[in-house]
């Protein structure tokens, strides 16, 4: 149970940024996982090279990713937003553009750090909780994920800017009618999503072994969680992440570890057919 929850929490963390980018800015970002890996690798070099602790690394990676993603949105994605006649066109264009971006980022990462695996040891102290053994670093990462998720949830539901973002997620045209600057809100959401994925990268780097071409794995997981939770729905992403984590752990334990990924996709496809708008209904709660 507990390993399943921890895994699910990590999925939720990885997916939160994408649900903002796709749900609000309507950009289906296929290069999402590459940015996660980039942040994780940066954390590795900060820690092993300069001795900067990963938790301190959050303070560097998150603002940097925010600025970078804001620039990407303004420079590369705004032309697509302008050109798109409707939401479908923007989705297709953004899939293609970010797919190109995926290769660029992955290629850069390869040139810079090569293809080998990286991992470091930070607070890997085993703890025994409720009969299962869990490493301290995983727990800390999960704790931070929960904190970030809660902060985001309250920011979205309790602040004016959060309200604007939720309005854009539901209906960009109507949001414009009530004097919300849709483009600014979208850029903000995209950049915030980028900051979140950097945070996720830093946190998973604490306990996962990574290499430069693993981004796609994270993108796929995030995509599944986002669609299952309902696009733009933070709580949905959290619950879907947990469901997925538990299901994977259960399949690995009870049926066959080799089938976890297959179970993953099967679950996803069933949800997609049964409730295409996600397990937890409408957009942006």
């Amino acid at each position: 149970m507990l390993p399943g929850l921890i895994l699910g929490g990590m999925y939720a963390l990885v997916a939160m940024g994408l649900t903002l980018q796709y749900g609000v800015a309507r950009i289906m970002n296929l290069s999402y996982g590459e940015f996660l890996v980039a942040a994780a690798l940066a954390t590795f070099f900060l820690y092993t090279g300069l001795g900067v602790s990963p938790l301190l690394g959050l303070l560097i990676a998150v603002p940097a990713a925010y600025v970078l993603n804001w620039a990407i949105y303004q420079l590369l994605l705004v032309p697509l937003v302008r050109r798109a006649k409707n939401r479908d066109m923007l989705e297709v264009d953004s899939i293609l553009a970010t797919f190109g971006m995926l290769f660029v980022v992955q290629g850069l990462a390869h040139v810079l750090v090569g293809g080998q695996y990286y991992s470091y040891s930070y607070l890997s102290i085993p703890l025994s909780i409720l009969g299962s053994t869990v490493a301290l670093n995983r727990l800390i990462a999960l704790l931070f994920a929960a904190l970030i998720g809660l902060a985001l949830y309250f920011a979205l539901t309790r602040t004016r800017a959060g309200m604007a973002i939720r309005a854009v997620a539901v209906d960009p045209v109507s949001a414009g009618l009530v004097a919300i600057d849709v483009r600014r809100a979208s850029a903000f959401a995209f950049a915030l999503g980028g900051a979140l994925v950097a945070a996720a990268g830093v946190l998973v780097s604490v306990f996962l072994t990574l290499n430069a071409s693993m981004g796609v794995v994270f993108t796929t997981k995030a995509l599944i969680v986002v669609i299952m939770g309902g696009v733009g729905n933070l709580l949905g992403a959290l619950l879907a992440g947990l469901v997925l984590g538990l299901a994977e752990t259960a399949v690995a334990r009870l049926i066959d570890p080799g089938l976890t990924l297959a179970a993953n996709f099967a679950l996803f496809l069933i949800v997609l057919l049964w409730r295409p708008t996600g397990l937890f209904g409408g957009a942006a709660r």
Partner: peptide, 20 residues
């Protein structure tokens, strides 16, 4: 060979932006 992935990505993006 080392820059294949980067160039491939650039080609993709050029197509999307310049030749819709």
């Amino acid at each position: 060979p080392n820059y294949f992935s980067i160039l491939l990505g650039v080609v993709f993006m050029v197509i999307v932006y310049l030749l819709p």
